[in-house]
Design a protein around this nucleic acid. Structure first.
Lengths: 350, 350
DNA sequence: GTGAAAGCGCTAACAG
DNA sequence: CTGTTAGCGCTTTCAC
């Protein structure tokens, strides 16, 4: 099956290659009859235009690149937990497929110099139609700088810092964490512990802030022991909870910055004989698999990551994102969050 | 930052573009001095050859495509559980990066007609250097047929059926399941339940066979109620266990075809007041996140998926896989498995 | 060891 | 509405 080219189709349909090109691209100025003839010929021959040729000849390319943090991605892909990236792939990939684009996930290494070099190389080799930056790469100044200079349109997903070029699509992590904390407060909890997430993620800080904000609004200041730092994983959550539960005045609720950590908290609590939600309330963040695997299932925060990624891809492909350090007006888009209440939280036991 | 081409580098280095091409590709017949000059120029200009141009002009392309089952992939990416694919991406992606290749994950739809069309289109558009088929696509005759005719080298990962073109890299699921079952038998268990996995996966059948084989070797025939069918997920495992535990003669051990299902079994057992491993032994398969999140952690089977995928990519890139329905000798490669014993299984309680 | 020419499969101007 | 002529940036002949 030697590769079939535009010439084969043109011959088969009895038209010039340019007409085939037009027909395939759905351009105007092609009569319906010709259109149909070309379509039929292409169909019969099993023709699909070479991406390489198309992007070489034309102005645009057909790949959307996703830059992720190499270390984080490797950890997740090896040990599980990379649900954010999975959802990103789902949403963006779907959108790409609709328009004949392809999604390429490229982990980017650490350190400004390495990141610069890698991104530059990737951009040069791929000449992507657009780039989606997953956190924490979406906050990497070196990457942003290279991207700006290359004039490649890009979307920063879940970026912490508001400044920088490109379109920023963020989740309202602070607000979400505040809302969840308020829910816990409404249930009567006062001694609430918080487990901070992966330190490299800006969202981790935002969630902590939201938590503290809600607490402060009630004139509550959690003791140091009630703020533990984890890495997003189950084990770190378990350790954090263990420390908190060792306090004389133990927390009646724990809010973890990720579902895996919340699951760890629940396990650690169970080890100490505390059951959720009767003895302790536990809330997570992310609405991942861990939230549904827990017994009881976790009350958590759902973020529309797939939809955001799809929207990012859509805009990139549609040319709606201005390249380079665009207009003065910061382009920021915020996604709604949703509190998913399940059985892991309940009123404070009296 | 206008895109820098081979001409720019040639001018900067004071050589012809052909020499640059040679130097960049590490061909012979380039003096060390010239080599160095070109390298320096390329470095200074931040040049990286356009993939499109390279694959259009040259014989080879620089993308390795992974075809996955669209439905399964979407489910996993949305709800978690796609650890196999994640490890595949990790291993193959890593290997690709070493040689300037790129890994493209493309979900392929259902039904022979649709699969044919999609694969044909993908092959035509991408002209990939090689294709990695993830299960269950690795057993799809329509896909194999298109691939064979296209003369694209491909590797079938975890394929169930031994026939078909391409190189087959398989795990010894039957043997692994048998080994795990034997372990359970050695611990004194006789009433062992089994939860079958996702029906579309050939491995699910192989694992069931291995289980039955080991049982039969001891003249044991599990009652129908002890063979439950799940879908690989937590919930289905919980339901399966619930049914088994409702039997008058309940099983003393349950072996589930996936870690998620095993976790579900454990949760269901706990609901009934049975703790592992004292009241019931529970084993999983896959060594995924669920295995480490469980309390106690799961005894499970580890498969070197990332390494297999890396090897697949390496061979594809290295041109070691013969395209089309190759020689008469079936090309089969088997990966070792490993029993990972953790705390979820123990001697049968007397 | 190096270079000049040709062309990969397609799109982008222009013509008609 | 359709066809012709040039390239896109590279690798591949084949010369030198």
């Amino acid at each position: 099956m030697a590769s079939v080219t535009i010439y084969d189709v043109a011959a088969q349909a009895g038209v010039s290659i340019k007409t085939v090109s037009r027909a395939m691209n759905g351009e105007r100025n092609v009569s319906a009859a010709t259109q149909e003839r070309v379509r039929a010929a292409a169909q019969a021959l099993g023709y699909s235009p070479s991406l390489s040729a198309r992007s070489l000849a034309g102005a645009r390319s057909f790949v959307i690149a996703v830059f992720t943090d190499a270390r984080l991605t490797a950890d997740h892909w090896r040990d599980g937990g990379g649900e954010d990236l999975a959802r990103l792939q789902l949403g963006a990939g779907d959108q790409c497929r609709r328009t004949g684009h392809h999604l390429l996930v490229e982990p980017v290494g650490h350190g400004p110099a390495q990141a610069r070099a890698e991104v530059k190389a990737l951009l040069g080799a791929l000449k992507p139609a657009g780039v989606i930056l997953a956190a924490p790469v979406s906050d990497d100044p070196a990457v942003l700088d290279v991207l700006d200079k290359s004039e490649t349109p890009y979307v920063r997903l879940a970026a912490g810092a508001p400044d920088g070029g490109g379109l920023r699509m963020a989740t309202r992590d602070r607000e979400a964490a505040r809302a969840m904390t308020e829910r816990l407060l409404a249930l009567g909890h006062r001694r609430i512990g918080f487990v901070v997430g992966e330190p490299r993620l800006g969202a981790s800080r935002a969630r902590l802030e939201g938590f503290l904000e809600a607490m402060a609004a009630q004139d509550l200041t959690p003791p140091d022991a009630f703020i533990q730092h984890g890495d997003g994983g189950f084990r770190s959550g378990a350790e954090a909870a263990k420390l908190m539960l060792a306090e004389i005045e133990r927390p009646t609720a724990i809010f973890a910055s990720s579902d895996e950590m919340a699951a760890g908290c629940m396990a650690a609590a169970a080890d100490r004989g505390f059951a959720a939600p009767s003895d302790i309330s536990i809330a997570g963040f992310g609405d991942g698999a861990a939230a549904r695997v827990c017994r009881p299932q976790l009350t958590t925060v759902r973020l529309p990551l797939a939809a955001m990624a799809a929207e990012a891809a859509r805009r990139l492909i549609g040319g709606e994102v201005v390249a380079g350090r665009g207009g003065e007006v910061p382009q920021d888009l915020f996604a709604a969050f949703e509190l998913v209440e399940r059985a892991s939280i309940g009123p404070r036991r009296r």
